[in-house]
Design a protein around this nucleic acid. Structure first.
Lengths: 269, 269
DNA sequence: AACAGAGGTTCAATATATGAACCAATAGGG
DNA sequence: CCCTATTGGTTCATATATTGAACCTCTGTT
């Protein structure tokens, strides 16, 4: 881990829940030395990545991030192309929808949209999604570059009793997703949360990310699952299109198959 | 300069004009060693600040910036509170409007809005504003913390023939701004561009940034200047309000005085 | 086939990061 | 009013991570 990486990592401790952090506090959270941390904060401040609240002496994220994010979005317009679709998805399903983007071997959260339909709802409060324990992650494993597999196996943390912590279990999940084109995580990351995800592709035909719905488990019924899957596929197509990509033929075929199957089950019951 | 700072500085070479940069190209632009630059890019990529376009192998800004910017805006909502005001300002003046924020001793560009009224228009393509050579910068010097002065004097680059490059000339400008509450830069940074700026304050009563209009010099008339000043003061009040601050009494008084003076001049001519 | 340019890698030299201990200032408690 | 426990910030010898010239490998051009 380079010193630059270590300094940058400090930024990840800031969140909407904890927007300002003091020096000592940050040292405790990050389990770092005070002198080092202080100097790293100075370095970050000098380039505008953080700034110090003059009143409290606490640190918070800085203005340079706004510019860079603007350039990023102008370069790779992901957020704009996802936001409206996400809102529709959240609205039609009544559950929290979110989009992740794959960069290298890491799956980053891009955008989240909660539905106002229910009082209780899932809140997505993670920055990087564990590949093995989330619907979006397994989706990436199923359709993303093959080197993701090794990365996933290196980190099989057990978040809940349902988390797949063995290669066998994970491969089984991945195989199922490859067949249906839709990923389903039954409380693998968080208890009480069911996740369903579909892949998004870029103009090169590679996996660009995933769109997912996080559903409170107690509300989860076969009917809702069907609605979510239907809407999810629409959203995945729309976002893929907005990002300038196209859904690969095999994926579209597996989607067609799995949706009719679901419908048959529905009508049978 | 710490190694982290050096790595972070690489990010500033990315812009909407040059969104993707290859390794060799970046080395030339930044005048850096290839091996070092490569490792720094790796470090930046590992934390999602940049990513490599798999097709071209070129680097571009990464997705982690989007999240951080989101947290920053949730923490210190600057952009939202400026955008609509800026649009109105650009619309009513017919010129390009922009907002800068002061962080430490650096003045960062936050947001820009061009007016569609004219074919030729000013484009704000800088990230950090020189304190001595821009209307916003002199505004910050006039009403910001006193330590800015020393920073400004350390860097009196001559951009045009009009740029104030001596302490005396700069002090003269600052004094004028302190009296009128409005800063005017007559082609100090870029030839053919007139800048007019007004200060913005935060809830602690300290200077938070500036709002400015960049006007193509050939269109600049006393009438337009008057319009710009009038609208600028409205914008400064609105943004200050949106950022939870208030305009200090003395500033409001100097504004009242300088606007009536301008009006007198207008009517006299 | 030879060449030029790209991205990426190696290793010794050395500049840079590190952290225990230390200061100064502030806030609360007895 | 002193004592203690915080805080943010600083110092300096030590040791570790950064550096860059030279090198490799691959790709497209002449």
């Amino acid at each position: 881990m380079s010193s630059a990486t270590k300094a940058l990592t400090l930024l990840s401790y800031f969140s909407t829940a904890r927007p300002e952090i003091g020096l000592s506090q940050l040292c405790r959270i990050a389990e770092r030395d005070k002198a080092t941390t202080y100097r790293q904060l100075q370095a970050l401040e000098s380039v505008g990545f953080i700034e110090q609240n003059p009143a409290t002496k606490q640190y918070r994220l800085g203005p340079a991030l706004m510019q860079l994010a603007q350039v990023r979005e102008a370069t790779v317009p992901r957020k704009d192309g996802a936001k409206t679709v996400l809102r529709t998805l959240a609205d039609r399903t009544g559950e929290t929808a979110h989009v992740t983007v794959l960069s290298g071997t890491t799956l980053y959260g891009l955008c989240e949209c909660e539905s106002p339909h229910h009082g209780t709802r899932a809140v997505i409060d993670i920055n990087t999604f564990p590949l093995h324990a989330t619907a979006s992650g397994v989706c990436a494993l199923a359709f993303g570059p093959s080197n993701l597999h090794a990365v996933a196996l290196e980190n099989l943390d057990e978040f809940t009793a349902n988390t797949p912590t063995t290669e066998a279990k994970l491969s089984e999940l991945i195989e199922a997703v490859r067949e249906t084109g839709i990923s389903h995580s039954d409380q693998c990351y968080e208890i009480e949360i069911q996740g369903i995800a579909a892949p998004i592709f870029d103009h090169t035909g590679h996996l660009a990310g995933a769109v997912a719905v996080a559903c409170v488990a107690s509300r989860f019924t076969p009917e809702l699952a069907h609605t979510i899957k239907t809407e999810l596929l629409i959203a995945a197509r729309d976002i893929t299109h907005n990002w300038g990509g196209t859904i690969p033929r095999p994926i579209e075929q597996s989607w067609a198959k799995s949706l009719t199957k679901v419908t048959e089950q529905e009508t049978a019951s």
